[in-house]
Simulated assay, not measured.
Amino acid sequence: MNFFEEISHRDRVFEFLAPAASPVDVRHGPILYLEDVSVSFDGFKAINNLNLTIDDGELRCIIGPNGAGKTTMMDIITGKTRPDTGSVWFGSRHNLLTMNEPDIATLGIGRKFQKPTVFEALTVFENLELAMATDKRVLPTLTARLTGEHRDRIEEVLNLIGLAQLHHREAGILSHGQKQWLEIGMLLMQKPRLLLVDEPVAGMTEQEMERTAELLTNLAGEQSVVVVEHDMGFVRSIAKKVTVLHQGSVLAEGTMDQVSNDPKVIEVYLGEGA
């Protein structure tokens, strides 16, 4: 794929720009609400009467064995998969099941996949600049000019993700952890209200894991952050509340100490040495 094809690729998670103030009403409840959600694929029930709420500004960790429904849950929230039954609301006004993927992203839901997708031939600064562009057609993107406000926003995000000193470096020569932080920064350029982060520390060094824990903890409050992760040490370092999924529904929920001592969780997940 050449550069022009890459920057017009429709599957990039940072494709759509969220408004500066996402119009999400959380005065009367959580920012994300799933009720009795179910979906089947070829007779297999990937999500089974799932009920889940995420509060505004919360950092929530989602854990569970392979096949528990974690990825499908995120697919449903972002509009990639339509459930067979149930309700999914973003705030009290936005029924996500009536919206498509671009509209959901524009509303303020950002998703980071496990494998970082950055433009390796561009600098860190240019990646953040491209993520902020409002018109994703090739020519407007290439001819867009940065305002002082745009530069301030990029500098703010660079400092937040810890890459300010590397703003001139090509993304392709960053470490794995730095690429993960850059992609989180690209999502932050879109000013999301909810971030879905899939296995952010897979393949990271211990030092990178510590920096990632600090970053995600700092992000909570300004936005809600949902982290799907298998590394229990990392989860313990950041989690105030943990949800355990099993066979497409919530098996347990509470603090890390509560769920790690739950006999059901030990039997189906932690006891497997996960």
Rank of each mutant, 00 (worst) to 15 (best):
V24S: 10
L97F: 11
D135L: 08
P30W: 07
L122D: 09
S38E: 01
L139D: 01
G29T: 02
G57N: 06
F44T: 00
P19W: 13
T147D: 11
T78E: 03
M73F: 02
G69A: 04
R111S: 10
L142F: 01
L59F: 06
T53W: 10
P116E: 02
G79M: 02
E149I: 10
K70M: 02
H150Q: 07
A20G: 03
Q114D: 03
V37D: 14
I63Y: 03
R82M: 11
G86T: 05
D84H: 07
V37H: 09
A20N: 08
V124D: 12
P23H: 13
N49S: 13
F119E: 06
T147H: 12
I54C: 14
R151C: 11
T85R: 14
R111A: 11
G91V: 01
W89H: 09
L96S: 00
F119P: 01
D84M: 04
A131L: 03
I109N: 08
S38D: 01
R111T: 08
P19H: 14
N51W: 04
F119H: 07
G67K: 10
K115M: 04
A68H: 04
L122V: 05
I109R: 07
V88I: 05
M132H: 11
K112D: 03
R145L: 06
C61F: 05
P83N: 10
E58L: 06
A20R: 12
L146C: 13
T117P: 00
P19R: 15
